[in-house]
Write a protein that binds this DNA or RNA. Sequence first.
DNA 1: GTGTATGCAAAGCCTTTGCAGCATG
DNA 2: CATGCTGCAAAGGCTTTGCATACAC
Lengths: 146, 146
Amino acid sequence: MAAGEPQRNTKQRQVILEELCKLKSHPTAAELYQVVREKMPRISLGTVYRNLELLAKNRIIQKLDTIGVEARFDGNPARHNHIRCTDCGCVGDLHDIPGDFLDQRFKQANGWKIIGCRIEFIGICPGCRNIRQDKSIPEADSGKSQ
Amino acid sequence: MAAGEPQRNTKQRQVILEELCKLKSHPTAAELYQVVREKMPRISLGTVYRNLELLAKNRIIQKLDTIGVEARFDGNPARHNHIRCTDCGCVGDLHDIPGDFLDQRFKQANGWKIIGCRIEFIGICPGCRNIRQDKSIPEADSGKSQ
DNA sequence: GTGTATGCAAAGCCTTTGCAGCATG
DNA sequence: CATGCTGCAAAGGCTTTGCATACAC
C-alpha cells in the first residue's frame, strides 16, 4: 500500500473514519477498534492500524505519535495542539494558540532548519480535577512525567 | 524497586550515567546499551532499562518519552526543549526558549489545569541539510510526521 | 476479471519482569 | 551478612506483516 491516495472506498475504511471523527477522545488504535467492532464485528485490528496509517499519510486524520506511549489518532487533520492529563492520560484539544508564539529568532537554531513544532501541554483534565478535589490532592505538580 | 533514591552505587549504574552524559545524541536505551557494553560486556539490556528508569525518577537524567516512538534519554535533567530531525530522527537540544512564551491566557483552558508544557520542534539537522543540499532536495516540508 | 484490502495469525519491536545468584554498604 | 542489584530469559503490550481470500472498481 505504501503512501499514495486511498485506492478503494471500503466499508471498513468508511466506518473507521466515521467513528474516529465522532469521537472527541483522541483514541488509541485499540480503543477505536473496540468502537468500530460494534458496527462491524468481524473487522480486524490489523485493518484498523492499516487504515489509520493510510488516512494519516493522506492527511485525512492526524496521528499523534509523540503524545504518550501508544499512538493516538485525531479525526481533525488541521494542525492544533493537544493537552495530556498527567492523571488519566487522556488527550484534549487546544485550538487558540497564537500563530506567532514561536519567536522568529528560533526559526534557525544551531544549524537546524526548523520547519515546525508541536506543543504538548501537560495538565489535569476536568474530571481528574474533580477527583483530586474530592481527595484533597493539590494540583501543583503530579510528580509524573519528567 | 519502585521510586525512591538509588540505594547502591553499582559499577553498572556509574557507567550508564557516565556514558549517557558523555553522549550528546539523546540515545535510546538500546543505543546506550551498545556503548556501555564496550566498557562492560556482560551488562544486560534489562539493567540499562532499570537504571535509566531509576535515574529518571530521581531527576538525575531525563526521559524524553514523548519524542518519537522509542524512549530517548538525556543526561541533562534541566528542563529544556528538543528538536527532532524529520529526516534521520535524531534529537537535538534547544535551550534558549523564553520562559514566558506561554501566554498567561493559556494557563487555564476548557477546565483543564495546565501545569506545564513540552515543545517538540520539528526540523532538519545540519547533517541532513547537507545531504539535502547535495541532492537538491528542498527543505520546505519533508512530508513526514503530521 | 484484476488487483487492492481484508481477516487471521504469527512475528517484530521495545520494554518490563521473575528469579536465582552476586556484590554493595 | 542482609538485601538491593544484576544477568538471563521469558513474557507483555503495541504494532506490523505474510498469506489466502474477498470485494471494489
